[in-house]
Design a protein around this nucleic acid. Structure first.
Lengths: 163, 163
DNA sequence: CAGTGTTATGTTATAATGTAACAATTTCCG
DNA sequence: CGGAAATTGTTACATTATAACATAACACTG
């Protein structure tokens, strides 16, 4: 169980995607929201890529599927998936990525590898605690925290150090 | 001294701007970078607004000055000011804001009020510490942390509660 | 202070990201 | 089935950002 850690480049990704899709079905079933063919496909594309994709990259992939899609199509699907908590928007990249832990109410953050593009989700409470404490001092009511740490992941750091 | 706290709506803002501009002059003098008329003006506009401004809002303000400015003009000034650490880019708003503490090497974060637009800079080390600890666990080498907490500031919360 | 290389700004065009508004289609449910 | 609601299609456009090349200002050397 290392959901929120960086995956080794050789991990069984097919399985990774399947698990995520199954979870998504469950989440939607429970909440009564409809994971349509289009929405399911968008989510699947995101998971298959396993790194953030921009809306227009997703659009391109949909078009390759043979679908005649325009920007609003993809943005609406993304909006739905965001609302369901099945994906996240990565502000610093204008991109989107599948969410590891859609069950949890997560005020989460990401570590984003600038080299391989992988993203590790982080739901460590100590960060949230620090934020809450600071917010309280300021009398600030937190609505949506955005925490995105870019840098180099373990595997890419190792690759770099070899040179 | 409450540099990194929310200012009351009635604080002496003119003084606030002047201080910031003086600091900027010093920072540039020391680093040997050139705070030209254009760059100084952009910084000043950001400080006068005291809330994040988009590149195109800034552009509009420059044009009102009588200057014939195009997008690259403003983006280049912003790039310079970012490099000098005199401003920050707010990813979640695609906007820019003057930096409170240009002296410090700051891995900083913001609290952003969704109602009045004010931004409080935060350089509390406990958040950075949490992040470093988590990064270490992952073998992640941090390059640039982006921490943007949106919500309601003290003054706007109070205003809302009155209704 | 003229000459020259460097830095900064101007200018034009275009790329990338995102949304508004309305039409057509599909799905749900009585 | 038939009407209401949700989803998707379609067109047009708004916003944010950058590439490429031209001109102007500056700063240093001799």
């Amino acid at each position: 169980m290392d959901h929120h850690l960086f995956k080794s480049p050789g991990h069984d990704h097919g399985r990774c995607v399947k698990t995520a899709m199954n979870r998504a079905e469950q989440v939607c079933q429970r909440s009564g929201s409809r994971l349509t063919t289009l929405r399911r496909r968008v989510l699947e594309l995101l998971w298959q890529n396993h790194a953030p994709l921009s809306a227009y990259e997703l659009l391109e992939l949909l078009v390759r599927d043979g679908r005649k899609a325009q920007p609003p199509t993809i943005y609406r699907s993304l909006e739905f998936l965001l609302e369901c908590g099945l994906i996240h928007r990565v502000e610093s990249l204008n991109a989107y990525i599948g969410c590891d832990q859609p069950q949890k109410e997560h005020e989460t953050g990401f570590f984003i590898c600038e080299s391989c593009g992988y993203v590790a989700e982080l739901s460590d409470s100590s960060i949230n605690l620090s934020i809450s404490k600071n917010a309280e001092l300021l009398g600030f009511r937190v609505h949506k925290p955005t925490i995105e740490i870019s840098g180099l992941c373990k595997f890419c750091t190792e690759d770099n150090d070899e040179h």
